[in-house]
Design a protein around this nucleic acid. Structure first.
Length: 128
DNA sequence: CGCGTTTGACCGGCGC
DNA sequence: GCGCCGGTCAAACGCG
C-alpha cells in the first residue's frame, strides 16, 4: 500500500476550501477583513438563537477560565461566518458571544426572543 | 434519511 | 532546535 504517506490526516486536498483564512500573500491584500464584534449577554445557556443556523465545530478549555469555550460556524452557502461563545469565569451567568465575519444571506427567522436578548446584551468592540 | 452534535488527534506558529 | 499552545478538522453516533 502505498503508504507513502500514511501519515494520516492530512491532506485537505479534496477539500479545496478555502476561504481565506490566512494566507499571506504578497501584498495583495484582500479587501475584506473579518469584522469582529462581541456581545455580552446574561443567560443561562450559551445557545442563543439569533436567527441563523450554527454548527458546533469544536470545544476547548480556556486559560483563566474553568469553563470551556465553544466554537460555532454558520451553515449557509457562501456564508463563512464564525461565532464563539465563552462564559465568564467570574460570572457564570454571563455569556460572551463573539461574531466573526459577515452574513451574506438575510435572516428569515428573526427570533423575537432574540430582540429581548439584545435588550440585555452589551456590545463590545474589540480594540480594533 | 439528513443534520447536528461530540470527542480525539493533528498542524502551524512562536518563544526562548 | 525544540517544546508548547491554540485552533481546526475528521469520523461516528443519535435523534426527529
Amino acid at each position: 500500500m502505498e503508504n507513502d504517506d500514511d501519515q494520516k490526516k492530512s491532506s485537505p486536498s479534496v477539500l479545496g476550501i478555502n476561504t481565506d483564512q490566512k494566507k499571506k500573500g504578497t501584498g495583495g491584500e484582500k479587501k475584506i477583513r473579518n469584522p469582529r464584534f462581541a456581545f455580552k449577554t446574561r443567560s443561562q445557556v450559551d445557545i442563543l438563537d439569533d436567527g441563523y443556523r450554527w454548527r458546533k465545530y469544536g470545544q476547548k478549555a480556556v486559560k483563566n477560565n474553568t469553563f470551556p469555550r465553544s466554537y460555532y460556524r454558520c451553515t449557509h452557502q457562501g456564508c463563512n461566518v464564525k461565532k464563539q461563545v465563552q462564559r465568564l469565569s467570574r460570572d457564570d451567568a454571563i455569556v460572551v458571544t463573539t461574531y466573526e465575519g459577515k452574513h451574506t444571506h438575510p435572516v428569515q427567522k428573526t427570533t423575537d426572543n432574540f430582540e429581548q436578548i439584545l435588550n440585555q446584551m452589551q456590545i463590545y468592540l474589540p480594540t480594533n
